[in-house]
Design a binder for these strands. Structure first.
Lengths: 347, 347
DNA sequence: CAATCATATTGGATCGTTCAAACATTTGCC
DNA sequence: GGCAAATGTTTGAACGATCCAATATGATTG
């Protein structure tokens, strides 16, 4: 298992002919060590391949240099690839600063809170990164009450709960961009197919469409909207209604899967309808659907910086405690050449 | 941060009127403690909400109860949702046994090995779970030489390297099932579109088709095969060649994305061709493609059991050191009703 | 030149757990 | 009843790092 003897502070100290504490200072407070001594110590560290024992450090300092990230129940739809990429970005960013991400599973908020408690007392986690925030989220309240550093990927959807650090993608800016894009292409009859009212993300995305329509002086009343859950087959039904009712030339959609429903409805009614989705999923890529790509890696990086700042290891005094990143419009076939054949899979 | 005083072995001992060590024994070796004492100690533990400090335990025992899992470079194609689900299953299974998963990022094998080294000496990880094994994998060699417990999700593709515990999905069994399924539907002209020779996974999946074809007494020579990388547009080109050359009535494909290429080629040549994919990705769902679903959660659970057995915390003396799980055939439209319209997105 | 100050380094104590061995208690047997 | 063996419990030391207080070193000054 361990071939060679473990390299410890003591052995490095002996090798560099200084004391333990000097080696420790060389690592944690290099400025209090005389430059030539410092150089000698660092040489020894490199030569022996010294790695501080995290356990020992943690025991003394009560800091683990580990952040927790909860994996919720398996979701196939929206978070399919998003979650994957976010975790990846998080792990990468953390690693660059000497932190690590520890996973835990929880299938609902209450279970997650139990895990918080366990991880805080047992593993001494330094903070948490939460995703999938929603109205009346008990997790943020719990953590805030206990002064545990954390950041959320997703805005706090209730203003009252006070504000904690968060990072989010600006859904409204995304649908606004899509709407403007369609308008520039000459569309004026632009409808919206979204999720039912009440979900933070869904309402945010809808608002980008409606406010932009208003700015452009275009009609965006109730008749121009429909709602559906995220299943493609349900979206198709809702889209069929919408198409028959107002006969739009374009539909802005809350997600790629919903967008796909619109494409199918248009196909079976034999209409040409421009479509935009949201999320830049594999499905949208394959369907050639214009969509909005979330800057996931960047969001993860910012999120990490925010927790670390809260923990106190990153500077950033006056810097913002939250970040709203605009998604990028990915223009594909469905918005610029929505002929019936575009209903075909792939290009 | 920490409202109440930390509960330690000592405080539990005081509360139960025994010594530290007895409390420790109550947890780690309950059978050496007198039943009535044990009960009293366990009561105190519950009452005080005691959680052993992982750091302290780790410092003493050199066991962290943490397993490492590497996130490779972001891959969009095959591992899209697979990786996500595997990690989830792993985290869940680990948690149930008091273990945790720690993530780290590495963009290639060498980087990953550097991380192994760092994590072993610094964080005292107890073992690793590797994915994406390939020919001449330096990682397994490195870990084996150092007697570090690990398991791979994916077979060791070179026999010479000795054998370590692994879990894998039986690709050959999958394509064999698909081939038999097509034969039962009356197909006899069944072609195969796979990845270039040399990749373990690709060759394995091809072999399931070719051996089944042989069993059925059907032609499966070179003319009935083509290879392509995993990009749909390249697959379409290869598929077009294949369709023109032998005019198959069905094509078994190495992946969903490749399968999609076949659907597109069939569509543009106006042919009816049954198609099966592999992976049960969102793309196959949306395209209504018959495919093979990997039992990912189960694979994760088995993988975890194998590492833990190697570490020594799980029993399983004579149990197998590797597991080959059959994928499940998901029958959808593209194999049973492959009319031209089936080229349309969704159902 | 001695006294003062600032700075660099050192030794001891500590975090919370488990290991190893010593100690105390009960049981078994002639 | 007494001694040995088995069982149950307690004590001291150690894991490897950081914190704290004390000391050694060098520079500065009256």
């Amino acid at each position: 298992m361990r071939s060679r003897q473990r390299v410890t502070l003591e052995s490095v100290a002996a090798h560099a002919k200084v004391s333990r504490q000097t080696v420790s200072n060389a690592i944690n407070a290099p400025d209090v060590v005389k430059p030539e001594t410092l150089a000698r110590v660092l040489d020894s560290i490199a030569e022996l391949g010294y790695q501080p024992s995290r356990a020992a450090r943690q025991l003394r300092t009560r800091r683990s240099q580990i952040l927790g990230y909860a994996l919720g129940p398996v979701t196939y739809s929206v978070y399919g690839t998003i979650g994957d990429r976010f975790v990846h970005g998080l792990a990468q960013a953390a690693q660059e600063r000497g932190y690590r991400i520890m996973l835990f599973a929880a299938s609902n908020d209450d279970e997650e809170i139990v895990q918080f408690d366990e991880l805080l007392s047992g593993a001494d986690l330094d903070g948490f990164v939460l995703t999938n925030t929603h109205h009346d989220d008990p997790r943020t309240t719990w953590l805030t009450e206990r002064d545990v550093p954390f950041v959320t990927f997703g805005r706090p959807w209730d203003a009252e709960h006070g504000t904690h650090p968060w990072v989010d993608v600006d859904g409204a800016a995304g649908t606004a961009a899509a709407t403007r894009h369609l308008h520039e292409l000459g569309h004026t009859r632009i409808a919206y197919l979204g999720w039912p009212h009440g979900s933070g993300v869904g309402d945010d995305r809808r608002s980008g469409w409606s406010s932009t329509m208003a700015e452009l002086g275009l009609n965006a009343d109730e008749r121009w909207q429909e709602t559906t859950d995220n299943a493609t087959e349900h979206a198709e039904v809702a889209a069929a209604r919408l198409l028959r009712r107002v006969g739009p030339s374009a539909v802005v959609c809350v997600s790629d899967t919903v967008g796909l429903g619109v494409m199918q409805a248009a196909e079976s009614q034999g209409r040409r309808v421009a479509v935009t989705g949201f999320d830049d999923s594999a499905v949208s890529y394959v369907a050639g659907m214009t969509t909005l790509a979330q800057p996931i890696a960047e969001a993860a990086r910012r999120a990490l910086a925010l927790v670390l700042r809260q923990i106190g290891v990153e500077p950033g005094g006056t810097a913002a405690r939250n970040e709203l990143l605009p998604p990028e419009l990915i223009v594909r076939r469905t918005s610029i050449r929505p002929d019936p054949l575009s209903g075909t899979v792939g290009s």
